[in-house]
């Protein structure tokens, strides 16, 4: 136990400054009213849905909770059910086999809700595109507010995407 406590003290606090929202990532302008966004800020819950990714984006979403990015420090946390979520973080081209599950997850998320598509595949279908097995981009299946490109996008870019979704549209 001594070693464990000592290691915590030696490690110290690693969290780095948080990034700002980035308007360039916004797809749909201002779907939610200012007072709702205000109540999301500081207490946002996220349900992640992998709709067919290569699992690269999942690695970076997991990185969001490492001590450097410490997403929970912003009052943003991942929840186990869409029914508890304010925002869906969706990765992948949407495989046809995940299409129904993604729509059901979207429907199970209570209004008002936000959707952030993650990665080149989530934004455009990426290298997998549209095919007999893939519906392509996330917005082909459910409405998307913010899309974050990258293969995979860095944790900072994903954070920016989430923060953009809960900030007021500047346009």
């Amino acid at each position: 136990m001594y070693q464990l406590l000592k290691q915590i003290l030696v490690t110290g606090i690693k969290t780095e400054p948080y990034p700002q929202a980035d308007e360039a990532l916004r797809v749909a302008a201002g779907r939610l009213r200012a007072e709702i966004l205000e109540s999301f800020a500081g207490a946002l819950t996220i349900r992640h849905v992998d709709a067919g990714s290569c699992n690269g984006c999942e690695l970076e979403i997991n990185s969001l909770n490492n001590p450097y990015y410490n997403l929970e420090g912003l009052g943003i946390k991942f929840v186990a059910s869409p029914r508890h979520a304010d925002l869906l973080l969706v990765t992948g081209p949407v495989s046809r086999h995940m299409e129904v599950a993604l729509k059901r997850t979207y429907d199970a998320t209570p209004e008002p809700k936000l959707v952030v598509a993650i990665g080149d595949c989530g934004c455009t279908g990426g290298i997998f595109g549209e095919s007999y097995a893939s519906c392509g981009r996330v917005s082909n299946v459910i409405p998307v507010d913010v899309a974050v490109p990258g293969c995979p996008p860095t944790p900072v870019a994903i954070m920016q995407g989430i923060l953009t979704a809960i900030s007021l549209s500047k346009t």
């Binding site: 067919g52 999942e58 495989s95 995940m98 599950a101 997998f128 893939s134």
Partner: peptide, 29 residues
Amino acid sequence: AYKHKGIEKRFEGMTLAEGVRLAGRVSGD
């Protein structure tokens, strides 16, 4: 097979140089 997204079909017709990018995304980890 929920994630089946047609990778093997996607490879068909790619140049050998293009294919390595897709191969590197069969399983990102």
